[in-house]
Amino acid sequence: MNTPAPHPASRIGQSTAIEMSRAEAEVKAAVFIAQQNPRNIENAQAEMRFACRQYALAEKAFFSYPKAGETISGPSIHLARELALIWGNVQHGTMELSRDTALGQSEILAYAWDLQRNSRSSQIFIAPHIRDTRKGKKDLTDLRDVYENNANLGARRLREAIFAMLPAWYTAEAIAICQETLAKGDGTPLDVRIKKAVAEYGRVGVTVQQLETKLGRPQDRWNESDIADLQVVFQSVAKGEMNRDEAFPPLRATAAEITGQQ
């Protein structure tokens, strides 16, 4: 007589079963506490307005990167996390569910959960262990490279999950205030901010001519909005969302310039 195979649940170890039970109890407790201590929307809105008027947050509030010949931009994961914290009664994060080195990919969960409303935005996605380079796609085998790749892709999906969970009016106002704060700058005069931007870009090999080409006007006509745009791009390059040559393609000499050089 053949003995039936044990049900998968029966193979769960004692430690795993204890952890599952603990996690379930923790979730129930978090939901109960959130519902017993509801957020004060007016206080959350006031705190959001205060936070978004701080230049330290505004300068990290947006991202920009190239995709399919276009520039993609929007509110960053830094702003998303800050708004979720201020909104309150929210849990969010990413979790690597599995990693397959043979196939070169990981399965990752990104989620944002409003405990008070018991409303959850989540997404499970596949993160290929690949990095796009100027010479084409590069397979990632080093554990640190894979971790950083997964963290970067996870942050993008987490950003989407948080903004999908937060009220649209709350997010829209935060974005508008951060844009105003970024345009006003940190209190220093515009000419000083322009010199600072030129110096920062110069240290990473970007010329004034490339900056002028990017903005479509000479340096002596730059305004607050131009400096704000350059700050967003600089932060995106610094965080690895785009590389320098993607943001500022090397200038090519014209036929007339080449002829004149001969």
Rank of each mutant, 00 (worst) to 15 (best):
T3V: 15
P6K: 12
P8N: 12
S10W: 08
G13C: 11
S15G: 02
T16G: 01
A17D: 06
A17G: 13
I18Q: 10
I18C: 02
E19R: 12
A25T: 15
E26P: 01
K28N: 05
K28M: 06
A29V: 13
A30P: 10
I33R: 00
I33E: 09
Q36W: 07
P38A: 06
P38L: 12
N40P: 14
N40S: 15
I41C: 01
E47K: 12
F50K: 06
Q54V: 08
Y55C: 00
A58W: 13
A58V: 11
E59W: 03
K60W: 04
F62K: 02
F63E: 03
S64K: 15
E70Q: 09
T71R: 14
S73I: 05
P75D: 11
S76I: 10
I77M: 11
H78T: 09
H78V: 08
L79N: 01
A80Y: 06
R81N: 03
E82P: 07
G88Q: 06
V90G: 02
Q91L: 08
E96G: 00
L97S: 01
S98W: 13
R99V: 10
D100G: 04
A102C: 08
L103F: 04
Q105G: 01
S106H: 05
E107P: 05
E107Q: 15
L109G: 00
L109R: 12
L109N: 07
Y111C: 01
D114C: 06
L115W: 01
L115V: 01
L115C: 00
Q116F: 11
S119C: 06
S119F: 15
R120T: 12
S122C: 04
I124F: 08
H129M: 09
H129K: 04
D132W: 08
D132Y: 11
K135D: 11
K137I: 11
K138M: 12
L140T: 08
L140F: 06
D142I: 02
E148A: 00
E148K: 00
E148V: 00
E148G: 00
N152P: 03
N152C: 03
N152Q: 08
L153T: 05
A155W: 14
R157L: 06
L158K: 08
L158Q: 12
E160Q: 12
E160R: 10
I162F: 07
A164T: 10
M165H: 04
M165K: 06
T171F: 07
T171P: 02
A172H: 09
A176D: 15
C178R: 07
E180Q: 13
T181N: 03
L190V: 09
D191G: 06
D191I: 13
D191N: 15
K195N: 15
G205N: 07
G205F: 13
Q209G: 05
E212K: 05
T213S: 03
T213V: 12
T213Y: 14
L215V: 05
L215G: 00
G216Q: 08
W222K: 02
D226L: 09
D229F: 14
Q231A: 03
V232Y: 02
V233W: 14
F234T: 00
F234D: 00
F234W: 11
Q235V: 12
V237Y: 07
A238S: 13
E246V: 01
F248T: 06
P250L: 10
R252Y: 08
E257W: 11
